[in-house]
Design a protein around this nucleic acid. Structure first.
Lengths: 346, 346
DNA sequence: TTGTATGCGTTATCAC
DNA sequence: GTGATAACGCATACAA
């Protein structure tokens, strides 16, 4: 009796490729081809297989496939924090684009910590992912080594460093700092301060500061940087900064915050202290978080291409896997634009 | 020469368990135990193995392990949308708790579509995940069938339906509707309206509405439900609702919005139209999105336990896998609380 | 505590 | 276009 299923140790009675093959009266490899290169299977058998697959509710075991091919249909992504209002869009765009092509997203967060990133990358590599997507170009030495040896596409997002080897999708944080300073200068502000992020590992924010510093010097203005206490929650950090700067002399007439959370904290603190925004002091953020347009006054900010980064990263991954046709020529660098969103606070 | 590596077809020259075993002069299974049950390996060999692992930079192949054990250290999660301000916290809590115990997160979004959820579940099952986490109890028949046959823990989050079999972690949306109506009634409002979500698949929001309806009838008040156009972006849907309701007669003196995005849209539209909030009309949201406290007037809302849901879901998963000790007795239901956050808009 | 034999479900290789 | 066979790298079962 071919019905007699031998008692297996583990996946007892599970429907496998062989079950389907037997029932459709073809070989296992033909069923495999039915899923991976359907055009190589004759239409007649295709139908037979399709019927059996539907009847048995067969789901291909991607783990076995991954082991056999040493390349799983899975892509690892490490992001500083999942719930952050900007990165969430990147994840969304990335995940959706991937899954539309049969790839799955393996996700972990690093909280701006190189160690956490390293352990995430290590864990991901154990799944022999088809590709890896990281954030920024700041990694531990061990991470650098792993990705160099992994022999899979690695993409760095939210950053742009021409001299680096990995494919990059993002923008220059230094240029954002430059653009912020120039924009405020163009509006007539002259005592422009910069408030750093309170998260210690956010090196990209420091690059924005550096762009600001260089630009102010270039313009012959005196830069003024305020650093909130490390690890202070962003709203409070913004408040702390605003209070400190408003009591300083000379008092700034415009403040660039490292991100919108800080800016919102600063904005509210300023209003509470009776400071008119933007008349007494302009406020500029970064991120264009959803609430930016809902504040009173609404928050001027610099909008990073968060969703585009995710979508483009997925496209580049799929391209380098041969799943998607390559757009134009192969581009090693993918520089996107940040836009200044002018609202009421400047 | 034992150095002579035979040319392999696929993972040519890759460092495997056997490479480590040979170099450490132990058997492969001992190295396997070193990773999975270290306490069963003698300290002396542990050291030897550790040294070789570090030297070779060996990373266990989780794909092979998953195939052999028919249970990967991976957990699938389907969430309506990743970038939504509330679900993001659930993902964050879930992912972090999992990864702290060596499990990885496989993530997909459904956009409130049962079909997309189904295809995500199907793809996940191919990875033989250790567990599956879904949102709400609304699934397609095929999904129900798959999770019933999968023989792995399945947890439903953001919901609570006592009669259902799967483990649930969440709260009763009906009760949220009840609480919202009772709260406003308690504050003296009598013409209380409800604005539905514009996303058609958000059935949980409809349950909140049902709770509202039941309560208003119970209180002897006349309910009034407004449904914005389907798929209209939330801010605009809120605006549409507010404008429609303010021109209605009798005009409501309080509005419950299906979520904070709608509420924010309504709030701004109301102010623009010269309506004083909460004097002319109170506004209550749901979600406690980050911007809620930053609006002017700040938005009263109902705060769901987003982060806790994620953390608790991960804990329950790990418990049922035997990774974590079970808290107290095994609980099939995990009912969490939503709190009314009273701010200026009510 | 440690080791041997075997199989997990698929795909690469090569032959037809 | 189709199939037989041998890996892929690890963990289970059982023995020592």
């Amino acid at each position: 009796m071919s019905e007699e299923k031998p008692r297996k140790r583990r996946g007892a009675g599970r429907v496998t490729l062989n079950t389907v093959a037997r029932q459709a009266e073809v070989s296992a490899i033909t069923v495999s081809r039915y899923f991976n290169q359907p055009e190589q299977v004759s239409p007649e058998r295709r139908e037979r297989i399709a019927a059996v697959v539907a009847e048995l509710g067969y789901v291909p075991n991607l783990v076995a496939g991954g082991l056999a091919s040493a390349r799983g249909k899975i892509v690892g992504m490490v992001i500083p924090n999942i719930s952050g209002p900007i990165f969430a869009n990147t994840i969304q765009g990335f995940s959706d684009t991937l899954s539309r092509h049969g790839y799955q997203l393996l996700l972990a967060s690093s909280y701006f910590s190189a160690e956490q990133e390293e352990s995430a990358v290590r864990a991901f590599l154990g799944w022999s992912p088809a590709a890896l997507v990281l954030t920024s170009h700041f990694h531990s030495a061990a991470t650098e080594k792993m990705i160099a040896e992994a022999d899979i596409p690695v993409i760095e997002t939210w950053d742009y460093q021409p001299e680096r080897e990995p494919l990059q999708i993002g923008f220059s944080h230094i240029e954002v700092g430059v653009a912020a300073a120039r924009y405020l200068h163009g509006k007539g502000y002259r005592r422009i301060a910069f408030v750093q992020n309170s998260a210690p590992g956010d090196f990209s924010a420091l690059e924005r500061r550096d762009g600001y510093l260089a630009t102010l010097r270039e313009l012959g203005l005196k830069p003024r940087v305020f650093a909130p206490d490390a690890d202070r929650p962003p709203f409070e950090a913004g408040k702390q900064a605003m209070e400190a700067l408003m009591n300083a002399s000379p008092r700034p007439d415009a403040i660039i915050f490292a991100n919108d959370n800080l800016a919102a904290g600063g904005l509210l603190a300023g209003q509470r202290a009776g400071i008119k925004i933007p008349e007494d002091c302009a406020v500029l953020g970064f991120g264009d978080y959803p609430f930016a347009e809902m504040l009173l006054p609404s928050l001027s900010t610099i909008k990073p291409p968060a969703l585009e980064i995710g979508v483009l990263a997925a496209k580049r991954v799929l391209e380098s896997l041969g799943v998607l046709a390559v757009e134009n020529e192969v581009q090693r660098l993918n520089l996107l634009e940040c836009r200044v969103i002018e609202r009421e606070s400047t």
